[in-house]
């Protein structure tokens, strides 16, 4: 099949998959469209605050949020930008990880996703979407807070995908705790293990298997640059993420491996309803942004694709933001 025919076939498959998935929920979302291009008013494209007060136990499910986040399930259309690639994404069940997983698959990559066992219902949906895009999906549930699991995770991803050349360290622990006096040792440790240690263990295990042209992506945050007072533990890990991206880029550049980060502003994900934000913040989430609303994970998918694809070959050691007009970078 020549390149043009293959791209057309892929597009058809993606649109077919998107049409098959078109649901009443998706139809309510202003942002859903199964065709690329055009433009929409970014202010009204997605839900604005006020949102209903809501709370779920950690880690929370996207499928139980009101409104449901848009991960690009029905709107992302690929065009072969990641043909033949093999990706491992932590936190691939919901949020930006899910949006990246769907986009990567629609762009032609095989995708392994890691998530917590409690997130299985969300993860099932992602696995199904990856398969509907005609790609291989590998589900690797488990808690990344131990070196042993992380080593095993990489080994399983390599075996399941038959190789690895995109690594997205995205899973995070975020809890809003206004006073340091209330931050327990256990909570601090949990945050560090998930957000700093796990990327270290995973990247260290993966690097020997990444050939030149491979890409590593870390999810940072606007919190890295201007942290909120109630995110003391979480925010410093995002500053660390922003920093490790830059030092690893220097270290791995000579090996032909690119390392970049994504810094979102306020994004509508299960983190926010399971303790990552207070109820007060949740009901007016995104009201602080010039666009007047929080972002949806789907609005960041293209960034992850960009940082992973060969076309982005000179981008390394960089942080790409999407903050609705607020924050850095």
């Amino acid at each position: 099949m020549d390149e043009k025919t293959r791209r057309q076939a892929l597009k058809a498959a993606t649109l077919g998959a998107a049409a098959a998935l078109a649901s009443p929920v998706a139809a309510q979302m202003g942002g859903s469209k199964a065709q690329p291009g055009g433009k929409q008013d970014p202010r009204s494209k997605y839900p604005k605050p006020p949102f209903k007060s809501q709370s779920q136990p950690w880690p929370g499910l996207a499928s139980k949020m009101n409104p449901r986040p848009d991960h690009g399930d029905t709107s992302y259309v690929g065009s072969g930008r990641l043909t033949g690639r093999k990706a491992l994404i932590t936190g691939g069940d919901s949020g930006m990880g899910r949006a990246a997983a769907i986009a990567f698959a629609r762009e032609g990559a095989d995708v392994a996703i890691n998530y917590l066992p409690e997130e299985e219902p969300d993860a099932r949906e992602v696995v199904e979407l990856i398969r509907q895009a005609g790609r291989k999906a590998v589900a690797l549930p488990g808690d990344i807070r131990t070196a042993a699991f992380c080593k095993d995770l990489v080994a399983k991803a390599l075996a399941g995908l038959g190789g690895l050349d995109i690594l997205v360290c995205n899973a995070a622990r975020q809890q809003s705790i206004p006073s340091i006096l209330d931050v327990t040792d256990e909570e601090f440790d949990r945050t560090m293990k998930t957000n700093i240690y796990a990327p270290f263990w995973i990247i260290r295990a993966a690097v020997p298997h990444l050939d030149p042209g491979s890409a590593i992506i870390g999810t940072a945050s606007e919190q890295a640059y201007n942290p909120d007072g109630d995110l003391y533990a979480y925010a410093q890990t995002k500053a660390a993420t922003m920093n490790y991206v830059k030092s690893l880029a220097k270290q791995l550049g000579p090996k032909g491996i690119r390392v970049n980060g994504v810094a979102p502003g306020p994004i509508w994900t299960p983190l926010q309803v399971s303790g990552g934000a207070s109820q007060g913040k949740l009901v007016t989430f995104g009201a602080t942004a010039p666009l007047g609303r929080p972002g949806q994970p789907a609005e960041l998918a293209g960034i992850y694709v960009r940082l992973a694809e060969d076309d982005g070959s000179y981008t390394t050691g960089n942080i790409y933001g999407a903050g609705g007009g607020q924050g850095q970078p």
Binding site: R43, D228, G229, D230, S278, K281, T288, P290
Partner: peptide, 23 residues
């Protein structure tokens, strides 16, 4: 145009991070 101004955004952001009697 809809929405709040830049300074107000900072106030709201600070408030969103507060809790309890400090809130």
């Amino acid at each position: 145009p809809p929405g709040i101004g830049g300074d107000q955004s900072m106030f709201l952001s600070a408030l969103q991070s507060a809790r309890g009697s400090e809130f």
